[in-house]
């Protein structure tokens, strides 16, 4: 419980730190590269394959029950935009980016580099977490878009070549509306914000030597994955009630 309060404190001071400034020059771009570019292949491969699997399972099931596959595409793109793309991207980034951030900041903590920053009047949150926070929010949205597109295309090709669904019927965007897009965008931004805060917090709490860094890395992966799931649940339920009609 005390951990959660401290975590909230890190989030608040991250937001305050964005206004305060005091981050190193060019750091945001460097972090965008580390978080975004280096995760592209990872996101593309994992979301592509899961897109194929989902369509395969859905078509199998529809075949078993109704045999009408014309609805698969239109329903799939709604689920991809409003949930699968942001959440699966978030889960994958929680693993890759969360572990990376915690390992970096954690090793700075145990080698007293964080204390050395503080001795020069630098707030570690401003210097270390804020640039990663901004980069992560932007890049999560970008990667969600990329991952969603790949998922959709991979799913469409699976439906066409495995189940003979007409491509025109599958790639029909007419039932997609702004409600799905905005719910997806809100989720992507939220996960993008949560992952660096949770993992940065775990990194700053690292103690001891190499074991401490290992602990921080594991805790960051689990913590940010759980955060993504929990936020997804909250946002999905909220979306269901707030956007209700529009999502149907």
């Amino acid at each position: 419980m005390r951990g959660l309060i401290e975590l909230w404190g890190v989030f608040v001071s991250t937001i305050a730190g964005m206004i305060r400034g005091g981050r190193p020059k060019g750091e945001i771009v460097r972090q965008m590269h580390a978080i975004g570019n280096k995760s592209m292949l990872f996101i593309a491969v994992t979301l592509g394959f899961i897109g194929m699997v989902m369509i395969y399972q859905a078509c199998m099931q529809f075949n078993r029950v109704t045999g009408d596959l014309s609805q698969v595409g239109v329903q799939f793109i709604r689920l991809v935009t409003s949930d699968f793309a942001p959440t699966l991207t978030g889960m994958m980034l929680a693993t890759r980016v969360g572990a990376g951030i915690a390992a970096e900041i954690g090793s700075m903590k145990v080698t007293e580099q964080v204390d050395a920053l503080r001795m020069s009047g630098v707030l570690p949150v401003d210097y270390l977490i804020v640039p990663r926070f901004i980069a992560s929010v932007v890049m999560t949205v970008v990667l969600t878009t990329l991952g969603g597109a790949i998922m959709y295309v991979a799913g469409g090709l699976t439906a066409h070549y495995q189940f003979g669904v007409n491509l025109k019927i599958f790639f029909d965007l007419s039932l997609l509306n702004p409600a799905h897009l905005s719910l997806g965008l809100v989720k992507a931004v939220t996960y993008g914000a949560a992952i660096p805060v949770v993992s940065g917090f775990c990194g700053l709490r690292a103690k001891g030597s190499s074991e401490g860094v290992g602990w921080a890395t594991t805790a960051a992966v689990i913590g940010s994955s759980l955060a993504v799931l929990l936020l997804d649940f909250i946002l999905s339920v909220a979306g269901f009630f707030v956007l209700g009609e529009a999502l149907r």
């Binding site: 007293e112 050395a116 001795m119």
Partner: peptide, 12 residues
């Protein structure tokens, strides 16, 4: 205050 840390704490 100037501080020399035990393990140097140089920014790597």
């Amino acid at each position: 205050i100037g501080f020399l840390f035990q393990n140097y704490a140089l920014f790597d």
